[in-house]
Amino acid sequence: MSCSGMQFASYVTNKNNNKRINIMVALFVVFTFIILIVIDIVVLKAQKRKHPAFADAAKAVFNKNSLSLPERIFVSKGHTWAELVPGGFARVGVDEFVLKSLGKISVNYIAKEQTLVKQGEVIFQGTSGKGSFSFRSPIDGVIQDVNRNLTNIQDPYRNDWGVIISPSNWADNTKSLKNGQALVSWLKDEFSRLKDFLAVNSMNTELAGVTMHDGGNIMEGAVTYMKAEGLKNFENEFLTF
């Protein structure tokens, strides 16, 4: 429709209507919407909580679907992995599940070369937040090499492996390790277990930034927000076997 000059003129001369529409419904609705948002932020502040929009932006989240894992690795119930490499040796490290649960792992101890280790014995230790954690060997054998560049674990399956072991009981050891589709299924179960664990052990779930709900995401490093007892329980339940 083309706008006629008469129509324009009628609106120019008819200025009385300005007074009639002084109460604007549109503004009322928008201001109600905005005022409710502002009140919500104030209420959260009074409760010493943070609105998600203003929460710590650095915290990423993870879930059972956001992990990847090399096809040939075998993972222990203590979340350490072993992978055969050329020469009949096995490279060993920490899996991504633990890395994401703790957020960041600084390694402060690695077992020495030529040390004889049994499956389940501590091979390296690290700290994350206020917690100190021990990681256990997934296999029996003799440590042939250690990763001297390992200070912070960031790339758990490639650059940030821990030790190389000459396996002495590979066939038997791998019976208790997870691989392939069994590993995928087990990891999914581990996520459910982690959510339950966080629900029980976190004093303040919102601080941990986790959800206990179906399919919800867990904030990276959620475990490190727990108190000392919770951190100890995490090691007992997820890193020990």
């Binding site: 609106y11 209507n17 529409i21 002084n22 419904v25 503004l27 609705v29 928008v30």
Partner: peptide, 19 residues
């Protein structure tokens, strides 16, 4: 919200000669 209420209410009030 402004657009829809403007179409549904604001834009019609002037021609209706009432508030």
């Amino acid at each position: 919200v402004l657009n829809r209420i403007n179409v549904a209410v604001t834009g019609l009030v002037a021609s209706s000669k009432t508030s």
